[in-house]
């Protein structure tokens, strides 16, 4: 069954990633769609952040990662450094887990 699963998962993922680029072939999007897309980034990014730092599977949960990512947000807000922010996120999270 594992090979059927791998093949099925590959086909489904390929189709999902291909759908947008294949369906929208123009260089310019319709104005209304373009307006939505500018706002898609904050919506999706915020959802990715909260589901990764405030949830564990289907439970809401806070932990070391919550604190590490919050600290990294402060760093990027104050310094604008993406690399600094990633280092702080991993270091604070690892440090808290080591306690």
């Amino acid at each position: 069954m594992i090979w059927e699963l791998i093949a099925g998962a590959a086909v489904v993922t390929f189709a999902i990633k291909a759908a947008g680029p294949v369906a929208l072939t123009g260089r310019e999007l319709p104005a209304r769609l373009a307006g939505v897309i500018v706002l898609l980034a904050p919506a999706l990014l915020a959802a990715l952040v909260v589901t990764q730092v405030l949830a564990d599977g289907d439970r809401l949960a806070v932990g070391a990662k919550t604190v590490g990512v919050a600290a990294s947000g402060f760093v990027v807000w104050r310094t604008g450094s993406i690399v600094g922010c990633l280092v702080v996120a991993a270091a604070v999270t690892a440090g808290l887990r080591a306690l």
């Binding site: 980034a41 904050p42 990014l45 915020a46 990715l48 952040v49 990764q52 730092v53 070391a64 990662k65 590490g68 990512v69 990294s72 947000g73 990027v76 807000w77 993406i82 922010c85 990633l86 702080v88 996120a89 991993a90 270091a91 604070v92 999270t93 690892a94 440090g95 887990r97 080591a98």
Partner: peptide, 19 residues
């Protein structure tokens, strides 16, 4: 224990702050 799993959400948060 290396906290690498915090790297992705930290990056998304950094991009979000920019947005």
């Amino acid at each position: 224990r290396f906290g690498f799993d915090a790297i992705y959400p930290a990056f998304f948060l950094a991009l979000l702050i920019g947005e």
